[in-house]
Design a protein around this nucleic acid. Structure first.
Lengths: 156, 156
DNA sequence: GTCGCTGCAAAGTCTTTGCAGAGAG
DNA sequence: CTCTCTGCAAAGACTTTGCAGCGAC
């Protein structure tokens, strides 16, 4: 695999380490390290989106067309990664199930109902409050999603 | 530490009023008020659970077996209610989409990714922080939704 | 009586599974 | 060489749609 193009999402973990963790995980469970599994991990790492199995499959078919990765392999690998807590899945309303690497930072969204623009933000106060709430209710927090809907400053 | 009000499902609206609103809505859109639509609304009102189409269908078959309500009608009515903003849906994991009456107090959700259970909570600190963030970014906040995903105390 | 609604069943979607050949270790 | 993995296609699971008779208004 070629090297990883850096993009603007801050990562809390480097790809090399992530890949190493994955290999350890596979070995520990007597599973094999295949090119399909590698490109799926890499694509999740390099994506700023929350990917659906279908969008991930399309992406793989574009970028790694020579591999002819089947949709079943995408599903199987996502399940494997999710079971191993390397990715988390979220569901957004009617849009179905989406996956993202567990190693990424949280982020929330302001969505303008007029123009559809999306602004990302992170607020430490809310982040820490969420952890407190989860703790107080005996809940192990894995992820969250928060959307604020309204009218952005350009539209008002 | 501030309080987390785990005030489960306080209703802000009486059933009679809800039913009246529903009838107005139907009339306005030239739709008919049928017994099926009524028992679905009533069952949502009387349930403290977040219902899936399937669980709602089972419940209806138990309580109103003489009506022989079809699963298709359940799906159609839930879509109608959702489009009219009388119910909201949450979806998560492999377990599909769940519905709840929108007329309940505003609250956010803790969703267990293991068993699919949903715990509601309201936290004033987060509520007010959201308003501040929207203000700071020049955004007029209309609504928001927040879900925390993780593992509940029974599953961990 | 009109026209929307319903139950049924068939058709779509999305996801999982069975299988035989391919490939990692 | 062994035993898992993969792509394909078929099977499942969940949801939507077409239709003819039913029922609200």
């Amino acid at each position: 695999m070629s090297n990883i193009s850096t993009n603007f999402t801050e990562r809390t973990i480097e790809y090399e380490q992530l890949l190493g963790d994955f290999k350890v995980l596979l070995k520990k469970n007597n599973l094999k390290f295949t090119i399909q599994r590698e490109v799926i991990l890499e694509s999740l790492y390099n994506s700023d989106e929350h990917l659906t199995p279908e969008s991930l499959h399309h992406l793989l078919q574009d970028k790694f067309s020579e591999l002819k990765i089947g949709i079943a392999t995408v599903y199987r690998t996502l399940s494997l990664l999710e079971d191993s807590n390397m990715v988390t899945s979220l569901s957004f309303g009617a849009q179905g199930k989406k996956y993202e690497l567990g190693a990424k930072d949280h982020h929330d969204h302001l969505i303008c109902t007029e123009c559809g623009s999306i602004t990302e933000f992170v607020d430490e106060e809310i982040e820490s409050r969420q952890h407190s709430i989860a703790d107080e209710l005996g809940f192990i927090m894995k992820d969250h999603s928060m959307q604020i809907y309204g009218i952005c400053k350009d539209c008002k």
